[in-house]
């Protein structure tokens, strides 16, 4: 269910992004000077569990990592999706590359809404001999159906709650999640 709701939301955003003039998509570069305890994301403690998907008190998706290192399904799924769709530019484990920023830093200043906006609409920072362009992923189901997953993974990385290695133990995918995934992919 969450997934179709997400797609509706994502679709609306995609249209919104398309209508925006180019300049509006170019958000100012995040500053690295901010030093909040949990950065822009706020307290990651889950207060709600929907079929193995966790939410913080602000209603944003969050991770749940147990003392033995077991991660929730979405953190694990986000790890996989990130390393398929994002890492060819943003580097392994959200650490950045020679031409795209480290998302473990970006998430210290980007909240969930802004994160979605950038992924859906893209972002451009051209000129100065170092052209940086992020494409719009609004139409890409392999990204849009896993937006929460990727966010949750990067949130855990950004907070320092999850290391660079592949999560060793994870919760299983719930039947509801599998269902929602299918519906989102249109299969």
């Amino acid at each position: 269910m969450f997934s179709s709701a997400l797609m509706k939301r994502a679709g609306a955003l995609a249209i919104a992004a398309a209508l925006l003039p180019l300049s509006a998509a170019v958000a100012p570069s995040p500053s690295f000077a901010e030093t909040q305890t949990f950065s822009k994301q706020g307290d990651p403690t889950p207060v709600k569990d929907e079929d193995g998907k966790y939410f913080d008190k602000n209603g944003a998706p969050t991770y749940k990592i147990q003392p033995d290192g077991t991660v929730d399904w979405f953190t694990y799924s986000g790890y996989r999706r990130y390393h398929a769709e994002c890492h060819v530019c943003h580097g392994p484990d959200g650490m950045g590359s020679t031409y795209a920023p480290a998302l473990i830093d970006s998430l210290k200043t980007l909240d969930f809404d802004h994160f979605q906006e950038v992924v859906v609409g893209g972002r451009q920072n051209v000129g100065g001999g170092n052209e940086k362009v992020m494409p719009s992923f609004g139409l890409n189901k392999n990204v849009m159906c896993y937006l929460d997953d990727i966010y949750v993974y990067l949130r855990a990385r950004s907070d320092g709650a999850l290391g660079r290695a592949r999560p060793a133990k994870r919760e299983n995918k719930s039947p509801a999640t599998a269902e929602a995934e299918k519906a989102c992919l249109g299969e």
């Binding site: 790890y79 996989r80 999706r81 390393h83 398929a84 769709e85 890492h87 060819v88 392994p92 992923f137 139409l139 890409n140 189901k141 392999n142 990204v143 592949r166 992919l185 249109g186 299969e187």
Partner: peptide
């Protein structure tokens, strides 16, 4: 899933 003009990768590598 395939969308024209979008990445079509389908694997996680480390």
């Amino acid at each position: 899933s395939y969308t024209p003009g979008q990445p079509y990768v389908g694997a996680t590598l480390s």
